[in-house]
Design a protein around this nucleic acid. Structure first.
Lengths: 136, 136
DNA sequence: TCCGGATATTAGACAAAGTCCAGATCCGTG
DNA sequence: CACGGATCTGGACTTTGTCTAATATCCGGA
């Protein structure tokens, strides 16, 4: 399937999100690129051509997508949050110098030996981040 | 060993850091508590009694400690960075609602099946963060 | 079609974390 | 004591993100 705006509308509906203009544009920005984008970058992309979308809307929409499970939040850079359109289980590779962030398929990664959780707690997610640096 | 200010001076010297007043206070704040603290919290602790230490110095000093390998940076909360006086290999448990951050000993945790790194890259560290939520 | 309420969007003020800089201060050495 | 390098400082500034009150849009029913 490709990431036409029409398909975006369907994707949003299937996640119980009312597909508005702005939401479709934002979803399209994320999904057509299949990349990790910050709110900043999303805003820049969405506003390149013409259709002005406000900062508040970008932030609101990304938060909404997150709640509805459409995207994932990736916290690796101390100064900004990235949004990840890939919600299948996977981990991240972060290049410290360049800030480049890429996926590591969870397929063959095994994590074992974690201690039991504290009473009354449930896991919300496990983030594995491999920080790498150019060998200088 | 306990975390007297005198011992802090030694610790700093052994990490090639000139032990000044402010640096000793900041190190003491972190090590005597053995807790994860944000820059904010460090500043608050250091300035409770009297000795005014400026924001710039707190930030500079924490960055210096980080470079010299005295502390570790923990990036879990999108709004602030935590500094961790425990530099032995370990992971983190993050309670999403409360913001509480605790250590998971790396002792029995095994991570296997990671793909090879891209050419010319070296691992700087692997961060494993277990995000938990109160079972409501 | 027109109306009204619910849902979305907006601009801009605001907040918090962190950076930056130019001047002041400290401290060891000659 | 004077000098110079290292350190510290206040405060302005930047960036990311939040909040709010006003406006715009959508949609179902009369």
């Amino acid at each position: 399937m490709d990431y036409t705006r029409d398909n975006m509308a369907g994707l949003l509906r299937s996640h119980d999100i009312n597909p508005t203009h702005q939401r479709i544009e934002i979803a399209h920005a994320l999904f057509s690129r299949q990349e990790h984008l910050s709110a900043d970058q999303v805003m820049a992309i969405v506003n390149t051509r013409h259709s002005e979308t406000s900062k508040a809307t970008v932030y609101n929409t990304l938060k909404l997508f997150l709640e509805k499970g459409l995207v994932r939040e990736v916290i690796v850079d101390p100064s900004k949050v990235f949004y990840d359109p890939n919600t299948s289980p996977h981990h991240h590779l972060y290049e410290v110098d360049s800030g480049k962030l890429s996926d590591i398929d969870a397929g063959h990664v095994q994590i074992s030996g974690l201690p039991p959780l504290p009473e009354g707690m449930v896991t919300e997610g496990i983030d594995l981040i491999v920080r790498v640096r150019r060998n200088g």
